[in-house]
Amino acid sequence: MSFSQNQSINNSKRLAQSVAFTIFKLLSFLVVAILIVILGFILVNGASVISWEFLTEMPKEGMTAGGIFPAIVGTLCLVAGSMLFAFPIGVLSGIYINEYSKDGWFKRFIKLMTNNLAGIPSIVFGLFGMALFVNRFGFGDSILAGSLTLGLLALPVVIRTTEESLKAIDKSFRIGSLALGATKWQTTSRVVLPMAFPNIITGLILSVGRVSGETAPILFTVAAYFLPKLPTSIFDQVMALPYHLYVISTSGTNIEASRSMAYGTAFILILIVLIVNLLANWLRRYFSKKVKMQ
């Protein structure tokens, strides 16, 4: 028997493969190219706008000049507020699901609901936040209402990361601790959580990125169109970067004149995402190196 019997079939098989692989490769690089174009376009156009004044001054002249300081401060407030809410509850909830709850309908129900919450569109969170926090609780358009709304949005993300980080920890550590007479909570807090911490923190950082860019949930719960002063309490309205970008690029007093402001704002938003991703990647690598050393 000779290997060259089906030379022509073999050749066409090879050809099909190399054509297919080339197409896939090109399409994959197209995806990368899209990202590079978007990032490049905004970073190049935005970079020239960025200056100390842009970052630290109030908007001026119908938001066609000046800076975006109040929007930066507003976004920081909202991120801090929402994380203050979502992080503890999310981590505790993740601990409950992975460490405490027994298999059964209740656990299944909670997991199903968490999944569903993760799938609800952000505008629906906006509606809900408006109905409950702004109107029913009477918080009005405020940092409080906006942070709670954003916090609910981030909750499933935090829960899932916590759950996954805990799941990755081998059972033997828990059993070892329990066998020494540690209680469940001692085991969780002294052995399991410290081990899961790096992954949890990475997830937290990524959800900060997500929250800082969300617009729809804050439209009706906190965001101010133009408010050239800083908040003094959690019941104040604030400007926020994503909403500011939306406003000045679609409905500002003079869209053309505020275009450069818009590029600058988009630049800052992208910068936040880049920093958050780099930080998360760096942490991941840092901690995994540490584990390897052990």
């Binding site: 995806v31 899209i34 990202l35 978007i38 990032l39 905004i42 990524l206 990125g209 997500r210 800082s212 860019g213 969300e214 617009t215 729809a216 994503p242 909403y243 970008l245 939306y246 690029s249 818009a262 988009a266 938003l269 992208i270 995402v273 880049l274 958050v276 991703n277």
Partner: peptide, 12 residues
């Protein structure tokens, strides 16, 4: 990274 970019930036 593509997943992290805010939707308002995509819109812009």
């Amino acid at each position: 990274l593509l997943a992290g970019i805010p939707s308002v930036v995509y819109g812009f």
